[in-house]
Structures are given as structure tokens and as C-alpha cells.
């Protein structure tokens, strides 16, 4: 695509911090923890259903790998890595799949 052609592809940045939503692999699930986000952003996410304590699954990924679609209680929300790496998660014992 012309946009990608002009701007080139961004290098994948991989930070290893297993406790962030961004670090989960596609299909993996975890329990939502605290959000290191500005209050309005965190509240918006909670209004959508992203409430700490609920199970979250990495449902889909855009072809470029960012943003990704996350599922909580059947609700699917897309967000970028710059947001998901500020959302802490607690890993579940075994890989689980929602729905």
C-alpha cells in the first residue's frame, strides 16, 4: 500500500514484561489488573467492560501486529500497543480460550 511504501514499516519493539496486556500472545488469556493510564482513559476502558479482575483474551491482531483486538466478556475492543503495555495482567495457570 502506498502509505506503507512511503513511511516504511516500523521496527517491532519487543519489551519483555510478562505482566502487561501487550506481552500476551495471540489467543492467550489473563486476568486484568491495574491500569497505569490517565483516569479518563482508564474509566473509558472500564465503561467498555475492561474491569480489573475480569478475564481478557487476545482475540485478533491487525495484519501489521498493532493494534490488536482484546476480548472481555464477549466485548471486543481494539487498542494499540502504546495503551496495552500500560495495562497490567496476571497470567492464568494454563492457556485458556474465551468463548
Amino acid at each position: 500500500m502506498i502509505f506503507n511504501f512511503i513511511f516504511g514499516r516500523r521496527k517491532k519493539q519487543r519489551k519483555h514484561r510478562a505482566s502487561a496486556l501487550a506481552d500476551l500472545q495471540l489467543g492467550e488469556s489473563a486476568i486484568l489488573g491495574d491500569m497505569e493510564l490517565a483516569l479518563p482513559v482508564a474509566e473509558h476502558l472500564m465503561n467498555l467492560g475492561f474491569v480489573p479482575g475480569l478475564e481478557v483474551t487476545v482475540a485478533r491482531s491487525s495484519p501489521g501486529g498493532d493494534p490488536r483486538v482484546y476480548r472481555v466478556e464477549g466485548i471486543e475492543v481494539a487498542m494499540r500497543r502504546d495503551l496495552s503495555r500500560h495495562i497490567h495482567v496476571e497470567l492464568l495457570g494454563a492457556p485458556a480460550f474465551g468463548d
Binding site: 490517565a38 479518563p40 482513559v41 473509558h44 476502558l45 467498555l48 493494534p67 483486538v69 466485548i75 471486543e76 475492543v77 481494539a78 487498542m79 494499540r80 502504546d82 495503551l83
Partner: peptide
């Protein structure tokens, strides 16, 4: 738009 990041419901 620092405080209005991309969050999109599917």
C-alpha cells in the same frame, strides 16, 4: 490527543 488514545469497539 494524548488523553484520547485509539480505543475502538468491534
Amino acid at each position: 490527543s494524548k488523553d484520547a488514545p485509539f480505543i475502538l469497539e468491534m
